[in-house]
Amino acid sequence: MIVNSLLVLMMVAVLSLARTRNLFAVIVLSGIYSFLMATLMVALDAVDVAMTEAAVGAGISTVLLLGALHLCKSEEARPAHRPWLPLALSGATAALLIYGAMGLPDFADPNAPIHQHVAPRYLQNEVDVPNVVTAVLASFRGYDTLGETVVVFTAGAGIIALLRRRKHKPEGKGRDGE
């Protein structure tokens, strides 16, 4: 029940986000959307994901977007033509994806394949860490986290290369990237 009402709220947030042309309102709405998503993750028992989404998705993303908005104009231009082609494309994609989603197992079905395959083994507490997510993240899938830090490092290096203060540009405002 709480899951469904959160989902409806998220749909409302995304719809108003797509319609608004004031970019500040868009960013605030995307922050609201991220916090709703974090709440939904708590309702879906994914507490670690909820904490990360609230801190990183709703916090750092919003700060980054506001920082970029400070350097750009805060009003979106009126679209030059009616967006029929994107609407048609999105509608076709939605129809295809919903057709596929109806073939998925029911929501919270205990006999779904996802609960039968490797999950029981991960829940056996083989590495003596009570939080299974931490155990899997650090012990079983440590290379994933290594790859993730490589991606974050590359992104940070790219941002520094892009936004480094240039001498010959009097207008170029340097900005801290991360």
Partner: peptide
């Protein structure tokens, strides 16, 4: 199931990057 949680933890950080 803990496995999707682990995958998505990684995805969130990469998404912000």
């Amino acid at each position: 199931n803990p496995l999707p949680h682990v995958l998505i933890l990684t995805a969130i950080v990469v998404g912000v990057a």
